[in-house]
């Protein structure tokens, strides 16, 4: 499984890239492979306030639906509208074109997993 070194992670298999006061969020390579072919993504409207752990959208594969949890506290700044017609981008490029949302941070989170810790979680 691909676990890029420059990202942070959650136990619920989201990744986070923090640049300034913006966090870009997606689901990990492991998460997309467990879900299988993703057929639909339900995304929130920009402006919505989130606390850490809030479910802010769902990802649907053929056999299951899974919630996307916010790894951070903040507000939705933008969602990846390209996913509306091409949800397979999450399967193809989970850390790139398959990003899900950008969140304007209220505070910089301190309890995210680093790549090694996430890798260890996957090996359990």
């Amino acid at each position: 499984m691909n676990v890029p070194k420059d990202l942070k992670y959650t136990k619920s298999h989201e990744w986070v890239r923090i640049e300034g006061d913006t966090a870009t969020v997606g689901i990990t390579d492991y998460a997309q492979s467990e879900l299988g072919d993703i057929v639909y993504v339900d995304l929130p409207s920009p402006g919505r306030a989130l606390i850490q752990g809030d479910s802010f959208g769902t990802i649907e594969s053929v056999k299951t639906v899974s919630d996307i949890y916010s790894p951070v506290k903040g507000q939705i700044a933008e969602t990846n509208t390209a996913l509306e017609g091409a949800s397979e981008l999450i399967n193809q490029d989970p850390y790139g074109q398959g990003w899900i949302a950008k969140i304007t941070l209220d505070e910089v989170p301190t309890d995210l997993l680093d790549p090694d810790a996430y890798q260890a979680l996957l090996s359990e």
Partner: peptide
């Protein structure tokens, strides 16, 4: 669209 149904989505 089976994920709407009870056997997958259960209480939701």
């Amino acid at each position: 669209l089976r994920t709407r149904e009870q056997d997958i989505r259960r209480e939701k």
